[in-house]
Amino acid sequence: MNAAALTMQIVSWLRPEALLFVGVAGSLKHDIGIGDVVVATKVYGIHGGRQTPEGFHARPEVWHGSHRLVQAARSALRGMLGVHYKPVAVGDVVLADDRSVLAEHIRRHYNDACAIEMEGSGAAHAAYLSGQLDTLIVRGISDLANAEKHKADASGSQSQAAERAALAAVTVLRKQQPASSPAVSLQPSRRDPEPVDVGVGERYLGTVLRTVTFGAFVSVLPGKDGLLHISQIRKLVGGKRVDEVADVLSVGARVWVEVAEIDKHGKISLKPVIENGNASTSRKTS
């Protein structure tokens, strides 16, 4: 399950007042070393864009860390060495070459990003879709995103970086007071609605979680997302050829879909709802 879908499921189940997403990352800056901690002031989704004959045109996606939680972190972690408050880049590729095309792409388009990881944008976007949920991404630096990454990993740097990030997150949480005093149970209460399953033929106003070369993953219910294949996306533009899925559906777009198939593993295939020759979609609004 990807980070966005898992985050939406957790948020729907626990209904938290704040979300802290903690893990490891590679450093993109010479002054940020292994063992340091980065509290993300912004999260960049770095793969959005379009390749044209004139070159690559980036279409940046950004999610801001909660101002309340960032300020709480600055206060709580004041005495902790090696803590940085800077943007973080998120992509679908492990960066292990600081001279690669990807590294140059980040330097050119996301020059203020100080670290790179693979999951933060999914969690941040899911929190954004859930409404007013304070969210903070905390990352421990486990490598320098260069050719020495495998050596750093072999030395145990990932577990050490994760421990540092977890310590920072717990320190921040200890400074927070819940809005309501009753303890939160990890078991669903009797008043919680029963989990809802999707069925073939059912229609939903879905939200695009992620676009890939072969289609778009669309959330239809909390914790339930399916694939709208590029062959189905063509129907949204009258059957025309689709070169870039993001040209038709951007992350956050709303689209009416119907469950076409659910395989034996529970994977959901979707198709667009077309009525009177038209499909209903809406772009993400800020």
Rank of each mutant, 00 (worst) to 15 (best):
A127N: 03
K235A: 13
A260F: 02
L20C: 07
S12F: 14
R107W: 00
G120I: 00
D134F: 04
F56I: 01
R50F: 02
H105V: 00
E17V: 01
P193L: 13
I137L: 15
R78Q: 14
R68K: 10
D192P: 00
S180I: 02
V93I: 04
K86D: 06
P178D: 00
A4R: 05
G239M: 12
H47M: 11
P182N: 04
I116V: 15
Q51F: 08
R59S: 09
V93L: 12
R174G: 15
T213L: 10
G156K: 11
L144F: 02
R254V: 00
R99T: 09
Q51T: 11
R108W: 00
S269M: 08
G23S: 14
V88R: 08
A161N: 10
E104T: 02
K224Q: 09
A124P: 01
V218A: 09
A126P: 10
A145N: 05
L81S: 15
V208E: 02
A72G: 15
G238A: 07
V218F: 07
V220C: 08
T211S: 10
S282E: 09
L227I: 10
H150C: 00
A123T: 14
V237I: 15
G91V: 02
D31K: 12
A3D: 05
T213K: 07
D31V: 03
K86W: 11
Q9M: 13
D98S: 15
G120M: 10
P188E: 04
K267R: 13
Y204H: 14
R241F: 08
A162Q: 03
R108M: 06
S219V: 00
R283I: 04
G122T: 04
F21Q: 02
V237C: 12
P178F: 08
D192R: 13
R107D: 03
I268E: 00
H125R: 11
M118K: 08
P182S: 12
K42A: 15
G82M: 10
T171G: 14
E17F: 06
A18Y: 10
V248Q: 09
G223L: 03
V237E: 03
L133P: 04
T135I: 13
K149L: 15
